[in-house]
Amino acid sequence: MSSAHREYVLAAGTANQTLSYRLRQNISFAGCPHARLPARQQLSVARAFALYDGQEHVLRYALAARVGSASDDAQNPLVNPCHDGTHACEAPARCQPGAGMEYTCECAAGYRRDGRGCRDVDECTEGLSQCGPFTLCLNVPGSYRCECRSGYRPAEDGQACVRK
């Protein structure tokens, strides 16, 4: 188990903003009950990855690691296909590591699974948009946009349109 709290300064031009984050993690290991384990084990981290998803406002991270003696690491490196690029996910799907060498291909909001890839959902033709009266729905990758018909302007609610 470990816990950490960090603060950092975000500098944007002449303005600085102090932000912080808290990290709590548990690492569990269950060895083979029939194996004779050395008195000392080592957690070896081959790679660490971090990805910020702006749509979900989430920071995801993953480690490619193994538990064993130091001599095992050179003979059997454990690297998930998401981390070394050998996965079969097709763009724009994102590879999400699972246990060991397992992974899934996941789609962002506004996209639907299509085999190992993702295809754009047309919110306009599928009736999923929130466009109001006197608007035109325009599909864009991963989302949609509402525009006012000719002779109309956006209403105060930002979704409907009213006569000019």
Results as ranks from 00 to 15, higher is better:
129 S>R: 06
107 C>D: 12
68 G>C: 12
85 G>L: 11
153 R>C: 01
152 Y>A: 01
88 A>M: 03
150 S>R: 09
140 V>D: 07
153 R>T: 11
114 D>W: 07
97 P>D: 01
135 T>H: 05
98 G>R: 10
97 P>I: 01
90 E>R: 15
113 R>L: 11
83 H>D: 02
90 E>N: 12
144 Y>R: 13
79 V>T: 08
63 L>A: 15
160 A>W: 01
118 C>V: 13
122 D>E: 12
100 G>H: 10
160 A>P: 01
73 D>R: 10
136 L>M: 13
99 A>C: 05
76 N>M: 10
111 Y>M: 09
81 P>W: 07
101 M>F: 15
85 G>S: 11
75 Q>S: 14
153 R>I: 03
107 C>Y: 05
71 S>G: 09
124 C>M: 04
93 A>V: 00
112 R>G: 05
106 E>Y: 03
149 R>Q: 13
161 C>D: 02
72 D>W: 06
133 P>R: 12
74 A>S: 12
131 C>Q: 08
141 P>G: 13
99 A>I: 13
155 A>E: 00
127 G>C: 06
78 L>W: 06
90 E>P: 02
158 G>E: 02
129 S>P: 00
150 S>V: 03
146 C>L: 06
68 G>K: 08
100 G>I: 01
123 E>K: 14
135 T>D: 03
88 A>H: 11
123 E>P: 06
63 L>N: 11
121 V>I: 15
97 P>K: 14
139 N>Y: 06
91 A>H: 08
155 A>G: 06
85 G>D: 12
87 H>C: 01
96 Q>P: 00
119 R>E: 10
104 T>Y: 01
68 G>W: 10
110 G>W: 09
89 C>G: 08
118 C>T: 13
70 A>T: 08
127 G>T: 03
64 A>Y: 04
65 A>P: 00
107 C>N: 12
102 E>A: 15
72 D>H: 08
117 G>L: 03
73 D>W: 07
99 A>R: 15
110 G>V: 02
75 Q>I: 07
134 F>S: 14
69 S>Y: 08
156 E>L: 01
106 E>W: 04
126 E>N: 12
159 Q>S: 12
129 S>T: 01
115 G>F: 10
126 E>I: 00
151 G>K: 05
137 C>P: 02
102 E>G: 13
